[in-house]
């Protein structure tokens, strides 16, 4: 707006320190650990350690599984969000509550639950093993499954919010132009909800990248196969804390870089 108008506004009075002091304390609490990480990091060891095959493998596994988990979450989560936002069926509220369950239960519990269902002796896993000889746990696919379990609810909730916020009259307009509900979803609803879908995908990706509890329970900690970066950081912490700091730093830099790149793409798109 006009700067003249802004100047003309009467002064709002002083900002209350009862709000400012806790706000600054909160900010410090969130930022200081990163500062500590950056200050305490053995910068000289960063490049050689990052280039070591073990770290490269864990990093690659983390990035690829998190991306795969995001793709699966999009494929299943967007339709689920649409169902919750746009249709009426008995028990819809209960379904929505169920979708949020993985958000509130500890990931380790989720991992145990996945083992009970998809493990070699699990409810479904048993049939899968008998039928195809495949066993899911302790494979890279299990890493993806564990990540989807914890990350998809973020996507569903974000996309459902975007769909609810979207003006349904645009879908009505599409219908009067001859669009079926599927066409209206594909060409009108989804593009208009794209920012919400992207935000949900980024949240899911970040959550999948950091996933620890369900992964170690369901997929194990096999270096080169199921050992993702967070597991590598934890393991390194037991043996050489310095290496753990370097691994943490790499994970931090990679995730910040990816998020920043995505953010630039949306704001310029």
């Amino acid at each position: 707006m006009l700067s003249g108008e802004r100047k003309a506004r009467p002064p709002r009075g002083r900002v209350p320190w009862l709000l400012v002091v806790p706000a600054l304390l909160g900010l410090g609490f969130l930022v200081l650990p990163f500062a500590g990480l950056l200050i305490g990091a053995p910068w000289g060891d960063l490049v050689p350690l990052a280039a070591s095959p073990g770290v490269r493998g864990a990093l690659w596994l983390s990035l690829s599984t998190a991306t795969a988990a995001t793709a699966v979450s999009l494929l299943l989560g967007v339709p689920l969000a649409w169902l919750l936002a746009r249709t009426e069926f008995p028990g819809r509220r209960a379904v929505r509550a169920l979708v949020a369950v993985p958000l509130v239960i500890p990931p380790v519990v989720g991992g145990v639950a996945l083992l009970l269902v998809l493990g070699r002796n699990g409810l479904l896993g048993r049939h899968l093993y008998e039928w195809s000889g495949l066993s899911l746990p302790f494979t890279p696919a299990a890493v993806v499954v564990a990540q989807v379990f914890v990350a998809m609810p973020f996507l569903v909730i974000s996309v459902e919010g975007a769909l609810r916020g979207a003006d349904r009259r645009y879908e009505e307009a599409a219908a009067t132009l001859g669009a079926t509900r599927w066409t209206a979803f594909r060409r009108i609803t989804l593009p208009m909800a794209a920012p919400g879908v992207l935000a949900g995908a980024v949240l899911a990706w970040a959550r999948a990248l950091g996933e620890f509890g369900a992964t170690i329970t369901f997929a194990g900690n096999l270096p080169g196969r199921t050992q993702t970066m967070p597991l590598a950081v934890y393991l390194a912490m037991q043996q050489s804390p310095e290496a753990a700091v370097v691994l943490s730093l790499i994970l931090l830099l990679v995730s910040v870089a990816v998020l920043a790149a995505l953010r630039d793409r949306w704001t310029t798109a």
Partner: peptide
């Protein structure tokens, strides 16, 4: 018939042009 199968054209109050 549902709207998409009616031979109609509608101009809405605030037009509802697809922004994207």
């Amino acid at each position: 018939l549902p709207p998409e199968r009616r031979p109609i054209g509608v101009v809405f109050q605030d037009y509802l042009l697809f922004r994207h």
